[in-house]
Amino acid sequence: MFEAKIKELGLELPPAPQPMGVYKPIVQVGNLVYLSGHAPLKSDKTIITGRIGDDMDVEAGYAAARLTGLAILATLRQHLGSVDQVVRLVKLFGLVRCTEAFDAQPSVINGCSELFRDVFGEDAGIAARSAVGANSLPGGMAVEIEAIFEVQA
């Protein structure tokens, strides 16, 4: 049902990102999967970089967060075989690389949150969430998002 929704929405998932360090992109413990921080990965495998409030505005940050959500979906699909194995999103944690004065981090992370709501629905796709500003992120990426999903055991 969620795979069909991805198709219905016309979403194209990138290849699942590979680790950029000593970690696993996803770890499953029982019926929970923990996704490491994901970056806004473009189809050419480059990452959107920038600082919201400086060389990027809220709309560009929102688009970067949405791309990050697509990368998370790609990792879920690779690990589970299908996103139809998802029961619900439990927790979303978003970091926004921004200026000290910028305070609209939730509006940026909504790019990912609204994507997950559209794919998984109002109940299963909306979770507990944090949206936090960061002075720097690896490689200068604009956002980094991690997630916890409940999946079918």
Rank of each mutant, 00 (worst) to 15 (best):
V90S: 10
V29P: 01
P138Q: 06
D123M: 10
E100D: 14
T99N: 05
I6L: 14
S43I: 12
M1T: 15
M1V: 15
S130V: 10
I6H: 02
G61P: 03
A74I: 13
D57L: 08
V151A: 04
E3I: 07
T46S: 13
C112A: 14
Y62E: 09
A65W: 02
L73T: 08
D55G: 02
P19T: 13
K42D: 04
Q105I: 05
Y23P: 02
G133P: 01
Q18V: 15
I47S: 04
D123A: 11
A4H: 11
N31K: 12
Y34Q: 11
Q28F: 02
H79D: 10
Q78E: 15
G140F: 11
G61E: 01
E144T: 00
G10I: 05
P17C: 13
D103L: 05
P15D: 15
L80Y: 04
N31A: 09
I145M: 00
L76P: 06
F149P: 06
M141P: 00
K7L: 11
K24W: 04
A104F: 06
G69V: 04
A60P: 00
E59C: 03
T46G: 03
G133I: 02
F120N: 04
N135W: 01
A134W: 00
E144L: 12
E8W: 06
I48W: 01
P17N: 13
R97D: 01
A71D: 04
K91M: 12
S82V: 07
P106W: 00
D123Y: 10
T46A: 03
I6D: 04
E150A: 13
V83C: 06
T46M: 01
K42E: 08
F2H: 14
V86L: 04
A63V: 12
Q18M: 12
K45H: 08
L80R: 07
G121M: 11
C98E: 03
N135H: 09
S82L: 03
A153Q: 11
V58T: 15
M1P: 13
L32W: 09
A153V: 09
S136V: 10
A128L: 10
G133H: 00
I72W: 06
V86T: 05
M56R: 13
I6R: 12
A104N: 09
A63C: 04
R97H: 14
F102C: 02
V96K: 01
D44C: 10
K24V: 09
I6F: 08
K45T: 11
A147P: 02
V29C: 07
L115I: 06
P106S: 08
